[in-house]
Each structure stands twice: as structure tokens, then as C-alpha cells.
């Protein structure tokens, strides 16, 4: 399974290729009359596990997401609330500490790395997520504290529990289809495919997912007296 993922992860060359394909497509779309079309994304898990919490994003030149208002992620009972967040690229997030003790929040996620040393209440500076992708928040002094942020850059985004996923009113053009689920073994990975949307044909794309039953993360120690997120995905989706 890891081996399969490894082949998909030859990312640098893959991304360069995608950009080369997308650029003329975008140029082409500017000069082409706008026609609203449907795009269908088929999702299938190899083990037929539930697709709960799957995020599907369709990225094209005409549908950039606009940064939202400040987004607050709380720390309550030695846990981040909420566990999963979907935020447009460029949005500022406030990591509010509601616990009576300090937290040290960090992210080593590529493109969105930050480090807020021990603090209480509201940190002095907000964090702006400048790049799309997965951001994993952690606390340096509480291993089991974790939060996932999906930073998207397109308006075409859906959080679904089943397949197929249909996007309507999609203009013809070339798109990058992204799929992510927190139950991927490698939670940093976003599955990506290029789809050219044209009139007169079925614009659809299929993804074979390799989901796990649960998210593997540190368990909260039973000796910890505080209540908080149990990190049971089914309770927090």
C-alpha cells in the first residue's frame, strides 16, 4: 500500500507537468464562450469503506476562492476544536487558547509552517494560510492535540459522504480535481487528477481511494483529567 502511494507521490515532476497542461488550457478558456457544464467525480474505496468526510475540489482559472473572514480554532480541554476545518487560501486563523494553561501550537506542513510558542488566550499574531493544501496543527507539549485544515483555492469544493459528486455550472476548460480524506494513511497527501471539461461529452473522473478505518493519531492519556476531543473520527466528522 505504501509502495503504491510512493508511486503517486512523484510529485515534483507531476506538478510541473500539470502546470504545463493547465496554462494553455486556461489561455484557451479565456477566448472560448462560457457554457455551463456538469462534472462528475466518482469515488471508490478499495475496501468499500465509507467515504465520510471526503473533500473534493475542482480547481480552474475561473473559480478562485476568496479569502474568508478570520477563522477561529479553539483549544479546549487539551484539544483543538474543530478537528477538521476547510478554509479558503489566504484566510487568517486565530488559534484561541481556552484552556487555563499554555499551549505551543505549531505546523510543519509544507507551505504553511508556523510556530506559536507557549501562550494563553489569543496569540499576539494571527496566522495566514497562504498556500493550499493540508495543514496539520499540533501542540508541542500535548502530543495528542491535532487539527486538520484543508486549505482550498477554488470555489468548486464539496465535502461529501458518498459518490458520485456532481459539480454543475462548470465552464469548459481544464481543471485539477483534488480529493482528500483524513483517513488517508498519509494525511499530507491530496489525490490530484487533471480533467478537461468540454461540451458534448461526459465530463467525469474516477478516484480509487485507499482509506483506513480510523485516523491513526496519539491517544489522549487516560491519566489526563481534562475532557476533550477523543479524536474519534466518527464523532467529529
Amino acid at each position: 500500500m505504501l509502495f503504491l502511494n510512493r508511486t503517486l507521490k512523484k510529485s515534483s515532476a507531476y506538478q510541473s507537468l500539470s502546470r504545463l497542461i493547465l496554462l494553455p488550457a486556461i489561455l484557451f478558456s479565456v477566448t472560448t464562450p462560457s457554457i455551463a457544464l456538469d462534472v462528475t467525480v466518482y469515488l471508490h474505496d478499495k475496501k468499500n469503506l465509507t467515504l465520510d468526510g471526503t473533500i473534493v475540489e475542482l480547481i480552474g482559472v475561473d473559480s478562485p476562492a476568496q479569502p474568508g473572514a478570520d477563522y477561529v480554532i479553539n483549544q479546549v480541554g487539551i484539544a483543538f476544536k474543530p478537528l477538521f476545518s476547510v478554509i479558503p487560501k489566504g484566510t487568517s486563523i486565530t488559534l484561541t487558547n481556552n484552556d487555563p494553561f499554555k499551549h505551543h501550537v505549531y505546523s510543519f506542513s509544507k507551505g504553511n509552517q508556523f510556530d506559536i510558542p507557549l501562550y494563553t488566550d489569543v496569540p499576539k499574531q494571527d496566522v495566514v494560510l497562504q498556500n493550499s493544501g493540508i495543514v496539520k496543527l499540533g501542540c508541542n507539549i500535548h502530543d495528542w492535540m491535532i487539527a486538520y485544515i484543508y486549505v482550498h483555492e477554488s470555489q468548486f469544493l464539496k465535502k461529501v459522504n458518498s459518490s458520485p459528486v456532481i459539480f454543475d455550472e462548470v465552464l469548459a476548460g481544464t481543471y485539477e480535481v483534488r480529493v482528500w480524506n483524513p483517513r488517508f494513511r498519509n494525511t499530507k497527501r491530496i489525490l490530484k487528477k487533471v480533467l478537461t471539461v468540454v461540451d458534448g461529452k461526459n465530463n467525469e473522473v474516477k478516484f480509487d481511494l485507499a482509506l483506513e478505518k480510523t485516523i491513526r493519531m496519539s491517544k489522549k492519556p487516560t491519566t489526563a483529567n481534562q475532557t476533550g476531543n477523543s479524536y474519534n473520527y466518527s464523532n467529529d466528522k
Binding site: 510543519f108 496539520k136 501542540c139 491535532i146 494513511r185 491513526r216 496519539s218
Partner: peptide, 9 residues
């Protein structure tokens, strides 16, 4: 041994 940052990374 897993490297947790903060989950398995």
C-alpha cells in the same frame, strides 16, 4: 517508531 507531527508523518 512513528514520528508524530502531530499525527503519523
Amino acid at each position: 517508531t512513528p514520528l508524530l507531527a502531530p499525527d503519523l508523518d
